[in-house]
Write a protein that binds this DNA or RNA. Structure first.
Length: 285
DNA sequence: TTGTGTTTTATTGCCTCC
DNA sequence: GGAGGCAATAAAACACAA
């Protein structure tokens, strides 16, 4: 599409593929449709015909803008979504509309843009949350796996201790199996502070025999005294909090969100998104 | 054709800025 | 106080299935 200059007549644009831009309108009965060029400057129009004048002043009834008018407005909106008074008047003249109509169109267009933008942002936020949740679930499984591994090893150690006083030679293999390597091989003196061995980790007299909140000694052999099996590392409340916090995590960089228009704002209410484009100067949502 | 849902145009009321 | 912005909403125009 390109601009057209036509003598005294004003400038307009012509769709590359089609005919001169036209605006359609109805008569007062709303039944007869006519086509009218809309790219005319009315202050230069020599004879504004009466019918069109009536059209402009007819009792208010909603009239849809033509496709060309909308296209022109869209183009203008992309260039600048704000409407200065001079531009509004000029657009109104070019399109054969009331300045008020142009202003309303821009107002509604900004509202539509904002709605779409919110939908986009929501989608990005949702996928980001899903990704984090998947990572979290994965870590949770890993934790459970490691816990059960610890329990398994602990059972072995406890079993070994049970048999320490037992002279039955048939237990030797099991004892060897359960013998902590650090104590056997290193030649280092056995030290209660040495936590490299499973024995010292588990059987030190001042550690896991006592469970926090319990004054009684727990019988060795009860493997549950080492680590209480849990459903999760987090309580339900904590999990809920995690879910909530994921919506505004500290230090988390959300994926880039694409916007339709350039120069987005940097705004704390933007859920931490790296804002790349600014639709409106008034962005304050 | 008609009922219904969606989109577009326009109004209203409130708020902010100059 | 006026102009212009926005949100909420009304209502006309449109799309479309039954």
């Amino acid at each position: 599409m390109y601009w057209l200059q036509n003598g005294l007549d004003t400038v307009g644009f012509v769709p590359v593929s089609g005919s001169r831009s036209m605006v359609s309108f109805e008569d007062f009965n709303g039944c007869k449709r006519q086509e009218r060029p809309f790219f005319r400057s009315f202050d230069q129009e020599e004879n504004v015909d009466e019918e069109y004048d009536e059209y402009l002043h007819q009792p208010e009834k909603k009239r849809r803008l033509s496709a060309d008018q909308v296209q022109f407005l869209e183009k203008s909106f992309v260039e600048e979504n704000k409407l200065e008074p001079e531009r509004k008047v000029q657009l109104a003249k070019d399109l054969g509309l009331q300045p008020r109509q142009v202003a309303i169109w821009f107002q509604n267009r900004r509202a539509r843009w904002k709605t779409k933008q919110l939908e986009k942002d929501y989608g990005a936020l949702e996928s980001s949350y899903n990704s984090l949740k998947a990572d979290y679930d994965c870590l949770l499984k890993e934790t459970e796996k490691l816990k059960s591994e610890v329990l398994h090893l602990t059972d072995k150690v406890v079993l070994k201790q049970k048999h320490e006083g037992n002279t039955d030679p048939s237990d030797s293999n099991e004892q060897l199996l359960a013998q902590p390597q650090a104590s056997v091989d290193s030649g280092m003196p056995s030290n209660q502070e040495d936590h490299s061995s499973a024995k010292s980790d588990v059987l030190d007299s001042d550690s896991p025999h006592y469970v926090e909140g319990h004054s009684s000694l727990i019988e060795p052999g009860d493997s549950s005294y080492v680590l209480e099996p849990e459903q999760s590392d987090l309580s339900q409340d904590e999990e809920d909090n995690l879910s909530k916090n994921l919506l505004a995590p500290t230090g988390y960089v959300f994926p880039k969100v694409e916007h339709d228009y350039p120069n987005p704002p940097t705004n704390s209410c933007y859920f931490g998104f790296p804002v790349e484009e600014q639709p409106f100067g008034f962005w304050s949502y």
